[in-house]
Amino acid sequence: MIENNLFDRLDRHGLVMAIWSPAAFLAAALLHKGVTAGGGAWWIGAGFGVLILGYAGHVIVNAVLKTRFTAGETALGLVTFAVGIVALLVTVLVAPSETVERVVLPVGLGLVSLVVAVIAYLVIAFGPRGAFERFDVIRDNNLRPASRLPHRGGRR
C-alpha cells in the first residue's frame, strides 16, 4: 500500500476521477444514443464497453499503486449498478413494447458483462477461494475461538 498519507490518497482519487469522468461522459453519450430511437444494440454494447474499459483502468490504477477499491468506490459502484437494474425493470414495466424489445436484451447483457468483469477481477486478484471468502459471511458468524481450529472448519 502506498497510501501512506493524505496526499497519496488524494493523488489516487484524482487519477481515478481523471479516468472515470471522461469515460462516464463517453459511455453516457453512447448509451443515450443506444436507448433512444434510431439507436440500437451496438451503441449500447459500445457504451458498456467504455464502462468496462474505465473499470479496467481503475483496476490497473489499483495494481500500479498497490491499493484496493475504497469503501466509497464500492458503494458508489453498487448503487449505480442497482439504479441500472431498477431502471431496466421500470422500462420493462412501463415502456412501450417496441422500446422494451429494443433495449432490454442489450442492456441486460451489458449489466451481466459488468458483473462478469467484477467477478473476473476478484478471481484474478484474490484467487477463486479468496474471492469467495470475501463474501462468505456464514463462516464468520461463529464467534467461539474453537471455530478457528482447522479441524472444526475454521480456515482463517
Partner: peptide, 10 residues
Amino acid sequence: AMYSVLLALL
C-alpha cells in the same frame, strides 16, 4: 490532467 484525458478520449 483530467482535461487532457478528456481531450485524448473525445
